[in-house]
Design a protein around this nucleic acid. Structure first.
Lengths: 348, 348
DNA sequence: ATGAAAGCGCTAACAA
DNA sequence: TTGTTAGCGCTTTCAT
């Protein structure tokens, strides 16, 4: 009778479980939260009661008192250039998909959930910041698409928790994960040199992005170790079109080149297209090495030899760093740098 | 003094705003929620106070009383085939990125936030269902990657709100958005026939997926209207590899074909590669039409003539349908079917 | 049109 | 080890 009434009223609460188990709300709460200091036999009783009532935690209620939500913001942030096309483009980039996959898979082992947010305008950035500042998420995972993204600084100023994917353009007291780009580029250089290539050029990413710079200097350093002090370069934009155009320029100025290192796979794919249009066979005439090991690497023909960036692992680590920070806010910013590996396929 | 104390204590609450504005909590709440019956002058005062205090709503507290979270689950659900590779692949598909973009952009106009979830195993599905059943999200947007996804039925049985992207394989009392695939395929057929192609074949998607079937029958119907009752087909898997292989088979059996309709752009891209390997020029020797107008359509060379699916709009509508359902749970399931358009580029 | 007050479900002192 | 109790910040009757 009483039970029937309750059933109609809503989902079971701690109170219901307590009544069924014949204990207090507090004890049930302790069991639910895995606190010690609860008699094993009572624990069993409580668990029984939880099962029979079909109890599930109300996160809003918990959140109200603990001031934790169990949610974190997964933010894709841009410099605010062309806001309209931004969202379409960024989510379509296979890179972001890998980040999302890595984050989701790690977070669910922790019972934490990612809230997807876009921060492509000043207003949107303010919203994101307000959202986490006001406790609607416990922190933010920020993936910036541009070098001068103001969002990380906003988070720092507000004292809100955040972890970045990739080192910020200017030093900031904030945690991030990144790749040893220098090492990765050296892997590419060694491979190209090892295949006997002598006239080697490189297509860089946008040079205001730290990763682009690091890949370029890493490549140059390694090549000069191999005895090639001068490396022709063409700046790209990390997109396929940019790769095509850059390759055109390189070919115009250096028609006899026999090796190219592109700073990401999308541009390498573009380079492949241009080379093909110019009748160059890959890898016979020109060897091409990409960077990332994204889906583009296996989608292109020939498939790309490329420097693998373990994006999913990096994303998981980013989430781990954030949760650690939330757990222990005193802890200073920490960063993790991952080591790249070379994946040899057909293009070089 | 009192203010300084408060500032150290935490973010401003309704109470703080009320004190500053010299009104009661209830009045501030009414202003915040846009309720009528508040004196315009008092509204102004309150808004002032909100601004000066930097007040922002605590969603957990609201959620506790309204039993709404303002969050919805954005679920990518698979049949559970190979759970491991699933997440990597699905988020990398440009299709999912477009859905996410459309959903995020629409939801933020409504002050609602999407929580990203993966449902690739039975356990994960149970988690997702429990999550929304227990009020941690107000409903779910489900994007299934396979025909026999059990998740929609689970939601229906549990009485939880959900809207699907694409009609389910077997009829279900649930809202969804979809495309007029039949019409889209006819667009492709008309275009191919209009270009004077006579020996036309098609690469289909997995034939247990409704969309694949609809595109196939739509294509056949239109072609027979053009006087071609027989159309060779090869079944693909909606991925590039599958397109390559299907094209191989088609070419082996019908070496003289001069037109191909692929049921999505990824497979069309694969077909392009195979055709190229066999020395066929596109569109001169063989015209190719894709489907989706995804990023692959502009990334391939030649760029694809394709049937455009307005995925972002469809995703936004999906979110709109869900919010409407949450607002008014009595309302029966509703579906919206979008019209495709033909985008003519270079491949046909 | 406004205010007073109850209470949403939970956690965390504090007592016992 | 367990129970009692006081809120967390908000919405929402019910009075006024």
């Amino acid at each position: 009778m009483d039970d029937a009434l309750r059933a109609a009223v809503g989902p079971p609460t701690l109170e219901d479980v307590a009544r069924v188990a014949g204990v207090s709300r507090a004890t049930v709460s302790r069991v639910v939260n895995g606190t010690r200091n609860v008699d094993p036999r009572i624990q069993d009783t409580v668990r029984q009661a939880i099962a029979t009532t079909g109890y599930a935690l109300n996160r809003a209620a918990r959140s109200l008192v603990t001031r934790r939500t169990g949610n974190i913001a997964l933010v894709v942030s841009g410099a605010g250039a062309d806001a309209e096309s931004f969202s379409a483009g960024v989510f379509t980039d296979p890179f972001f998909g890998r980040v999302a996959a890595g984050v989701v898979k790690f977070l669910r082992t922790q019972g934490v959930h990612p809230v997807l947010m876009l921060a492509e305008t000043d207003d949107a950035r303010a919203d994101v910041l307000a959202y986490v500042r006001h406790g609607n998420a416990d922190g933010a995972l920020i993936v910036s698409t541009h070098a001068e993204d103001p969002l990380p600084a906003l988070f720092i100023d507000a004292g809100a928790h955040a972890v970045l994917f990739a080192r910020p353009a200017r030093p900031l007291p904030i945690s991030y994960v990144d790749l040893a780009h220098h090492t990765g580029a050296a892997l590419a250089a060694d491979h190209l040199a090892g295949r006997g290539r002598r006239r080697i050029a490189t297509i860089t990413g946008p040079l205001d992005v730290p990763a682009s710079q690091d890949r370029l200097t890493g490549f140059r350093d390694a090549m000069s170790r191999h005895g090639y002090p001068y490396i022709p370069i063409a700046e790209g934009d990390f997109r396929q079109d940019g790769g095509e155009l850059a390759m055109e320029r390189l070919l115009a100025e250096h028609p006899h080149l026999d090796g190219v290192f592109a700073a990401n796979d999308l541009m390498a794919q573009g380079a492949l297209l241009t080379l093909h249009n110019h009748g160059r066979r890959v890898p016979d005439d020109v060897a091409v090495v990409g960077f990332d090991d994204s889906s583009a690497a296996v989608a292109s023909r020939p498939q790309l030899t490329t420097v693998r960036q373990p994006v999913e692992l990096m994303a998981a680590e980013m989430a781990r760093l954030l949760l650690a920070r939330i757990e222990n806010p005193e802890q200073p910013p920490r960063s993790t740098i991952f080591e790249p590996t070379l994946v040899v396929r057909q293009s070089a």
